[in-house]
């Protein structure tokens, strides 16, 4: 964590005001306690956050949620098919692969919904194209923006909400690329901080140098737009 020994209370407040909340984190309180979060999302207590988890790599969907009542499955998979006796039943038609007890509990508690058959016609066998198509939700279209990016653009076309898109990873996913929003991307909230000596902060802050780093909603400076 950044230690800022030379700052007075007033300096501290002024820094947060000027948008340097990310620099004055104290303690390693994790996401919920981090001033970064409360500042950047402007989230009131009780507001909902949609969390999307993207798993990379291949998954065999038909052996994850198994359509055990469908003979076509076993005809197509004489060796791979998982039989009714060897899975966790959901209903007359489907069942979970037998180690998915956690999901089974969520399902029984009414906290889970399953969407079957997500895909698109004539799927590309290029790993990289397929990933891109699933992240844009618009296969073979040349769409440059992600499905979450377009969602944010529709809900908030003028960008009134600070940082509706947060992407926790070491690189930005195509899924959050949007027309009217710059996603907030970082890998580790405890490391999402600028390590900087007090003298430099004071120097910048004292001379209105906030433009030198980032805008207070973490959008890059205009120089990047020119370079794009």
């Amino acid at each position: 964590m950044v230690r800022t020994p030379g700052l007075t209370r007033a300096d501290h407040e002024a820094l947060i005001q000027a948008g340097f909340g990310g620099m004055v984190l104290e303690g390693a309180g994790g996401i919920a306690a981090s001033p970064v979060w409360s500042k950047v999302t402007g989230q009131a207590a009780g507001e909902r956050i949609l969390v999307i988890v993207e798993l990379s790599g291949g998954n065999d969907g038909l052996n994850t949620v198994i359509p055990h009542a469908d003979d076509a499955c076993y005809v197509a998979r004489p060796r791979l098919g998982i039989h009714k006796s060897n899975l966790l039943g959901i209903d007359d038609h489907f069942g979970f692969q037998r180690t998915m007890t956690g999901f089974e509990k969520l399902w029984k508690d009414g906290k889970m919904a399953i969407v079957h058959g997500v895909g698109y016609d004539q799927p590309s066998f290029s790993h990289f194209s397929s990933m891109a198509f699933l992240q844009t939700g618009a296969p073979n279209s040349g769409e440059a923006h992600g499905w979450l990016g377009r969602l944010a653009d529709v809900i908030d076309p003028l960008g009134h909400n600070a940082n509706p898109l947060i992407n926790i990873d070491d690189h930005q996913s195509l899924a959050v690329t949007a027309m009217n929003h710059v996603p907030l991307v970082f890998d580790d909230p405890d490391r999402f901080t600028r390590r900087i000596y007090a003298t430099l902060i004071r120097g910048w802050m004292g001379h209105q140098g906030t433009a030198a780093i980032l805008n207070d909603d973490f959008t890059p400076l205009p120089v990047f737009d020119r370079a794009a």
Partner: peptide, 26 residues
């Protein structure tokens, strides 16, 4: 990271990565 190599251009810059470039400089 994969056989496709690394991303280019703006893929190198996210708010987190921009901080980290500054941290490397320090």
């Amino acid at each position: 990271p994969t056989v496709a190599g690394w991303g280019e251009g703006r893929a190198w810059i996210t708010p987190g990565l921009l901080f980290e470039r500054g941290n490397f400089a320090r």
